[in-house]
Design a protein around this nucleic acid. Structure first.
Length: 703
RNA sequence: GCCGGCGUGGUGGAAUUGGUCAGACACAGCAGACUUAAAAUCUGCCGGGGUACGCCCUGUACGGGUUCGAGUCCCGUCGCCGGCACCA
């Protein structure tokens, strides 16, 4: 009907944007390659959002430019099509996720083509396609072979509302990232991936990447490497047990005045004295009852003495051993030496419980009486003596002296002493935990493992048995017991080991949605290969990805997981590069139209707007506000732009100039009703207008 | 609180990476032309102050500094954005 659709039809018919690779007919080996990649979308039922074309247009511009500059350009598109929405729709309606997914993909493909992107559609991939699932499972077997996939029975993040287990990355503030439901800890059998084995490489590899500083920083924080030492304390009266702590400041060992175990620490039961047993048990019970959210909200220091003493390995001094929930069971060794003079948390705790505070590093602030006001946590010179020149107790008995040494030298000296006495060693810790990789869902890749029916260790299926495909089921709802709906299908679960003929039970857990997106950029290079995930020659030509554009929300999830898998594949000789994405650019978010909000009395109160000085600051809807003057209940109401007038820095109601109006653009959402459908824009103004407009209004983010 | 990033016109953003002229290219705005009028189109103006219209002074958040030379480098302050948050 117009020039755009006419040429789009021509491009389709003539495969104008077909890009052969090494070994393909028509490949021009003289040209250099350029790989311009978009984060492929989850094909949701809502169709394409106006946010999608922003990044896609940017890569398309670069792709077209590079083609004209004489590059072979790989510019593909596909579908990250496993995922919760299709499954939840299936639970509600009984429609098979395959049906929903196919319909959504058809819509997305049509919409993207209508926007005129120069994708090579012959390379389209769908993560739910059996040919694709095969290689995702094949990579899992590689992980397993390399000792990087294992079963765990540790407590996991269980979300009762979703009926599912979540990874650490999917839990935010003790609630599920999706839906904000409460999450609790519950022990369950799970599959884990040993991403921690790659922590150092994932951290160090960031240095050379051309990525936004903010994304690199987020990954660094997430991995959270800290360099320090483990120190072993003997326990008085327990020759068999050792209290092992982790510290980043071994140089402050002389300043330790007590030790703390996490309430969940296995030594708690061992060391607690009969006199203290009741208090300790009470405290542990109270801690277990607290949710992660409670712990975060209440930062006041609480704890109980166990009755035990630990021996400082450098001074021989006896330190009381406490339990307190400010020490986290899951980090380091779950136990610390407390140095209140040089750690803010220990200082708070020591102050609250009247424990001694001993300065060993110069630099602290004291009040008129010489008492420490706030802990000095920086580096500095070590002091062995008090103001009158007497050696500080503890240090006096020690075999080492740190007097006059700076922090770095003191660390070295303490470490050398500990190592020679077998009482400690240099140690690095990370916040990164292993990746919880199993989900109790239907719409995901089955984990290709079987369990002998007679009992015994699970074992991987041979590659020849792949793909393991999903069976038809009657109900897609999770069992609620922590088992996937697959567990309810005996015909599928009960199987025969293809190698031994033995009766086995299939693993009923499936992989998380991240699995498919961990390697899709490799499949684009060689989408129909039946012998390997990707042909090595083609991989060497195209990889690494030269430009990767997508939303900043993937800074630590997709981008960390994909780097991990890529490094494993590199070690396995499947790929030739250590990092998959050379340059990363974040696209911004496209917000809805600016909305104007004023405050009114709630329904029962006298009708009318509330003037500026009495209204609350925020403007979230569905929230009750209070009139700052008389305490009456207020509601935020949206007012049309025509009722609003600019006044000074802000806006006021035209009819009531004393009523302040806040103006703000919100994220587009169905509930807010401010969603703009790209189809409508294309129909009215054309694809080029939409593309140009988005490039104009929303620059790609540089940070 | 800690970590990271960023502050250039009404707006999005340029400035060959320390080099001759900051504000390219656009959007918006203002004025003019065309039109009965409007839209579209075309022309001109468009950081601030001054101007005898030739130009002159000043200006890249603010205050210092390094340099022959600073939007760019260093120190400090303020502001904004993002992330983390009892991680020992």
């Amino acid at each position: 009907d117009d020039i755009e659709t006419r040429w789009q039809a021509y491009w389709d018919a003539h495969e104008t944007f077909r890009q052969p690779g090494p070994g393909d007919p028509g490949f021009d080996a003289a040209k250099p390659g350029f790989y311009a990649l978009d984060m492929f979308p989850y094909p949701s039922g809502a169709g394409l959002h106006v946010g999608h074309p922003e990044g896609y247009t940017a890569t398309d511009i670069v792709a077209r430019y590079k083609r004209m500059r004489g590059f072979n350009v790989l510019h593909p598109m596909g579908w990250d099509a496993f995922g919760l929405p299709a499954e939840q729709y299936a639970i509600k309606t009984g429609t098979h996720p395959r049906v929903t997914t196919d319909a959504n993909i058809t819509t997305f493909r049509r919409q993207l083509k209508r926007l005129g992107f120069s994708y090579d559609w012959a390379r389209e991939v769908d993560t739910t396609d059996p040919d694709y699932v095969l290689w995702t499972q094949w990579i899992f077997l590689k992980l397993y072979e390399r000792g990087l996939a294992y079963e765990s029975f540790a407590p996991v993040n269980w979300c009762p509302a979703l009926g599912a287990v979540l990874s650490n990355e999917e839990v935010v503030d003790g609630r599920s990232e999706i839906g904000g439901h409460p999450v609790e800890q519950r022990p369950m059998r799970q599959w884990m991936l040993r991403i921690t084995a790659y922590a150092d490489r994932l951290l160090d590899g960031l240095d050379d990447l051309d990525w936004p500083a903010s994304v690199k920083e987020m990954q660094r924080n997430w991995i959270g490497r800290s360099v320090g030492a483990e120190v072993d304390f003997r326990l008085v009266g327990h020759a068999e047990a050792t209290l092992r702590v982790f510290t980043t400041r071994p140089d402050t060992l002389f300043g330790a005045t007590y030790a703390v175990l996490a309430p969940e620490h296995p030594l708690v039961a061992t060391v607690t004295t009969p006199e203290q047993a009741a208090a300790v048990e009470g405290y542990v019970a109270a801690t277990v009852r607290k949710t992660e959210r409670d712990r975060m909200e209440d930062r006041s220091k609480t704890g109980v003495w166990t009755g035990a003493h630990a021996v400082n390995p450098v001074s021989g001094e006896k330190l009381p051993v406490w339990i307190a929930d400010y020490v986290l069971a899951g980090y380091g060794t779950g136990a610390i030496m407390a140095v209140p003079a040089h750690d803010a948390r220990d200082f708070e705790f020591a102050t609250a419980f009247g424990l001694p505070i001993r300065e060993v590093v110069a630099g602290g602030k004291t009040d008129a009486d010489g008492a420490l006001i706030e802990p000095y946590t920086g580096d500095g010179l070590h002091v062995n003596s008090d103001a009158s020149g007497r050696a500080v107790p503890g240090i006096a008995e020690a075999g080492v002296s740190l007097n006059g040494l700076d922090t770095a030298a003191a660390k070295t000296a303490v470490l050398a002493y500990l190592e020679s006495n077998g009482a400690g060693r240099a140690q690095t810790t990370t916040k990164l935990r292993d990746w919880l990789f199993s989900r109790q869902r239907y719409w995901g890749e089955p984990i290709p493992v079987v369990h002998p029916a007679a009992g015994g260790a699970p074992r991987p299926l041979p590659a020849s048995a792949l793909p393991v495909l999903l069976p038809e089921v009657e109900s897609y709802a999770p069992a609620g017991t922590g088992e996937s709906p697959l567990a309810a299908i005996p015909e599928w679960v009960e199987a025969v080991d293809p190698e031994t003929g033995e009766a086995v039970l299939r693993e009923t857990n499936t992989m998380p949605q991240w699995a498919g997106s961990c390697w899709y950029y490799l499949r684009f290079i060689d989408p129909t290969n039946t012998g390997a995930p990707v042909d090595p020659e083609k991989e060497r030509y195209w990889m690494p990805v030269d430009l990767y554009v997508g939303g900043a929300e993937h800074a630590v999830l997709h981008l960390l997981y994909a780097r991990f898998w890529h490094k494993v594949l590199f070690d396995a000789g499947v790929v030739s590069t250590d990092e998959p994405f050379r340059k990363l650019v974040n696209q911004g978010m496209i917000l809805g139209e600016v909305e104007y909000t004023a405050f009114r009395y709630a329904a029962d109160e006298p009708f009318g707007y509330v003037s500026a000085e009495h209204a609350a600051e925020s403007d979230e809807e569905d929230v009750a506000y209070t009139d700052t003057r008389d305490g009456a209940e207020l509601v935020a109401v949206r007012v049309p732009e025509s009722d609003v007038e600019k006044r000074g820095d802000g806006f006021v109601l035209r009819e009531h100039p004393n009523v302040r109006v806040t103006s703000r653009a919100h994220k587009m959402s169905k509930s807010r009703g401010n969603v703009v459908n790209p189809d409508d824009i294309v129909a009215e103004y054309g694809a080029d207008s939409l593309r140009l407009y988005e490039m104009f209004m929303g620059p790609l983010e540089q940070v």
